[in-house]
């Protein structure tokens, strides 16, 4: 009994440790003091500042860039990753499969900073061959994001494909579907939850990314690089950035809670199928 209380205390303490700073940031986004140490009364000033203040043009610009990059990167990753997963699942050569899945893991296990530097080098070399200017600069960041998002799409889609019965696809072919029709009418609907999950996860990873974006960005800002720019070398985070950080916290935590709500009972299903 005593032990149970001690364990509960341990859980509570660690959870407080994990969430207190985040809560602190959110609480202090509702007051308008220059520092975090004194409470200046409840107000929406930080949010007003964020949406209408001096920096609001830069913030909306960054928001727009983040959204463009996030949507493009997650769409490309989802298409590329879903195709790849279907392909990988039907490859019979164990060796080829092992090689592709191992390389697919590199962006997930590699240190973010190594991925960032290696992409800086790649884009530096590509730039000597292909000149892109102005708006198209964003392409670098989008491609960099596709690089680390696609493995997560595959991670979500591949188990779904393993669960789904290959015989249904074959039956569709036997009943006169072309492989493309069978793909659209049988395989895709079957793995759709995995595809959607992969899409949401890619979008979350993309809008949340800082290191790889910071290294590869050139001439514009996303939300995270803007926050870094405003926070770097300053004693206290400006009020508008507190509000922005709080919004990102809530959005990311909400999205992830949404994703993580489901897959609990799927793992057992997957296990049952493996045999």
């Amino acid at each position: 009994m005593v032990k149970k209380i001690i364990v509960k205390c341990l859980f509570a303490l660690v959870l407080v440790f994990l969430y207190l700073p985040i809560l602190w940031m959110i609480i202090f986004s509702f007051t308008n003091t220059p520092s975090f140490s004194s409470w200046g009364g409840f107000s929406f000033d930080a949010y007003k500042e964020l949406f209408t203040g001096r920096d609001s043009a830069a913030i909306f610009e960054a928001l727009r860039n983040t959204a463009i990059i996030g949507i493009s990167a997650s769409l490309i990753s989802t298409v590329l990753g879903t195709m790849a997963a279907i392909g990988i699942n039907s490859i019979r050569s164990k060796k080829a499969k092992a090689v592709i899945t191992s390389i697919n893991q590199i962006p997930m296990v590699n240190s973010e900073i190594v991925t960032a530097v290696s992409l800086v080098l790649l884009f530096g070399i590509l730039r000597t061959f292909i000149q892109l200017d102005g708006q198209v600069q964003m392409l670098n960041v989008i491609l960099a994001h596709v690089t680390f998002c696609t493995p997560y799409v595959i991670l979500n889609v591949l188990p779904r494909l393993r669960q789904s019965d290959n015989k249904i696809y074959e039956a569709a072919l036997d009943l006169g579907c072309t492989p493309t029709q069978a793909l659209w009418k049988v395989v895709i609907p079957d793995i759709l939850p995995g595809i959607l999950m992969g899409f949401v996860m890619s979008f979350t990873l993309s809008i949340d990314d800082f290191v790889i974006t910071q290294f590869n960005i050139d001439g514009f800002q996303t939300l995270s690089t803007l926050i870094y720019l405003k926070a770097h070398g300053k004693k206290s985070l400006p009020a508008s950035m507190r509000a922005l950080s709080s919004i990102i916290f809530v959005v990311i935590l909400g999205l992830m809670a949404l994703i993580n709500r489901k897959p609990k009972n799927k793992t057992s299903k997957q296990g049952a199928y493996k045999k």
Binding site: P21, S35, F210, L237
Partner: peptide, 21 residues
């Protein structure tokens, strides 16, 4: 597990806010 998904920049700024407080 949830905090893993927030990028470390924001979490670090949050801890910095705590220290400041």
């Amino acid at each position: 597990m949830l905090p893993m998904w927030i990028n470390f920049l924001l979490r670090t700024l949050a801890t910095k806010a705590m220290f400041e407080a």
